[in-house]
Design a protein around this nucleic acid. Structure first.
Length: 400
RNA sequence: ACCAAAUUUUUAGAUUUA
């Protein structure tokens, strides 16, 4: 069972949940009984509405094998359910109130789940009601206010909470960045007693999103000198901000850092690079990174297709579209948007229409307002104004 | 010094969207 657990854990760690489930099935097939460590690992992979059925299956297993009295297994269940949308949150509540004993993690998980579901009133009630609070409890409720854009309430809480750790400070800084108050964010950043890679990422991303080049580059330089070990999140986050504000200079610097590290093989990081170069108008570089990305995922293809599309390279976008299908990737609604946009910008009117007409049949994608908008744009650009207008009036979705 | 071992659940940053 230890070996199976180790393999399951490794798959989860490498974001390969399907393989983790496969191992789980295999261990049952071989007659090895899961233990109290197996379930929390698996449940980590179910924290997504699309896996609600897996979650229910594992839950049933847990009940059947009598692990529902294990408080850690139970807490894992609450956490997983509470991240599965509005249906999940009901099951989480039920479990929470039914379980024999609750520890501080149970309360924290439930509160965090409620906040994620947007029920801050209920979350606050639980926070006030819980018998004891630890740092996670305070940080969770603090983040709730920050995410709700209630920075004044958050600040009051921040000042009166019993102790502040690097997570509390980072939460506040992130909130001020999102609110556009970079002065306050910077003041807290300078003042915080110890910084880690996340705090640096938040503040640099904040500056970069706003196009404040000097500050962003200055702090990035300091970060590199600080000798912290950077993670993929830092690169992805800063690159996304560069893409948004067109900061090619900083983007290139980050790329240089990545080249010197092992992150050049990280798909998430490569995707962020592709998008950054494409958004900054450097399609050639974007394509070079794309080709060098060894384990491409759907996002890699989507980013590159979209890059070609918005720069008017309709043919290249469509070529890439065929290629991805040949390699067994299933296009999703984002891919389709890129493709429709490519057809629109390159004047491939009929091609665009026929792709649109077969969306459901060929790709299982049901057209949303963005797709209709794109098609109307396509017709309009193609000079077929009457059809464009007729479509806008007759489409089965609410116009925006 | 080398080697080895080491994180079961909850909180902060996170790629593609007309």
């Amino acid at each position: 069972v230890d070996l199976y657990n180790a393999v399951i854990k490794a798959h989860i760690h490498n974001s390969q949940p399907s393989q983790a489930f496969a191992v789980f099935l295999q261990m049952q097939y071989c007659g090895v009984l899961p233990d109290n460590l197996t379930y929390p690992y698996l449940l980590k992979a179910c924290s997504d509405e699309s896996r609600l059925n897996y979650l229910r299956m594992i839950h049933t297993h847990i009940e059947k094998n009598g692990f529902n009295s294990d408080i850690i297994v139970c807490n894992s269940l609450i956490d997983a359910y509470s991240k599965c949308g509005n249906i999940g949150i009901c099951s989480a509540k039920q479990l929470f109130w039914v379980m024999g004993q609750r520890d501080v993690v149970s309360w924290n998980s439930m509160i965090s789940g409620l906040l994620k579901a947007g029920d801050s009133v209920e979350a606050r009630k639980l926070f006030d009601k819980m018998p004891e609070r630890d740092r996670v409890s305070w940080n969770t409720i603090l983040d709730g206010y920050v995410k709700a854009r209630e920075m004044n309430v958050a600040f009051e809480l921040f000042e009166k909470m019993p102790s502040r750790d690097v997570v509390s400070w980072s939460t506040m800084i992130s909130g001020y960045c999102k609110a556009g108050d970079m002065e306050m964010a910077r003041m807290l950043f300078d003042k915080m007693p110890s910084k880690n890679v996340v705090s640096w990422t938040i503040i640099i991303t904040g500056y970069a999103e706003k196009g404040l080049v000097k500050e962003a580059i200055g702090l990035y330089t300091q970060l590199e000198e600080a000798n912290l070990s950077l993670d993929a999140g830092t690169f992805v986050s800063v690159l996304a901000a560069c893409a948004e504000s067109g900061m090619l200079g900083l983007g290139k610097r980050v790329h240089r850092t990545i080249k010197r590290s092992t992150f050049s093989r990280n798909t998430l990081v490569c995707n962020a690079l592709i998008d950054m170069y494409a958004k900054c108008g450097s399609l050639t570089k974007a394509f070079i990174v794309f080709k060098k990305t060894r384990k491409k995922d759907l996002v890699s293809w989507n980013s590159m297709i979209h890059g070609f599309a918005v720069h008017g390279h309709g043919r290249r976008a469509l070529d890439l579209f065929s290629k991805m299908k040949c390699q067994g990737f299933v296009p999703d609604k984002v891919t389709i948007l890129g493709i429709l946009s490519a057809c629109s910008h390159a004047g491939f009117i009929d091609e665009g229409i026929s792709i649109f007409n077969a969306l459901q049949r060929d790709y299982g994608v049901s057209p949303e307002v963005q797709h209709y908008g794109c098609l109307i744009d396509l017709l309009g650009r193609g000079g077929r104004l009457k059809e464009a207008f007729a479509l806008a009036l007759s489409m089965p979705v609410e116009p925006n």
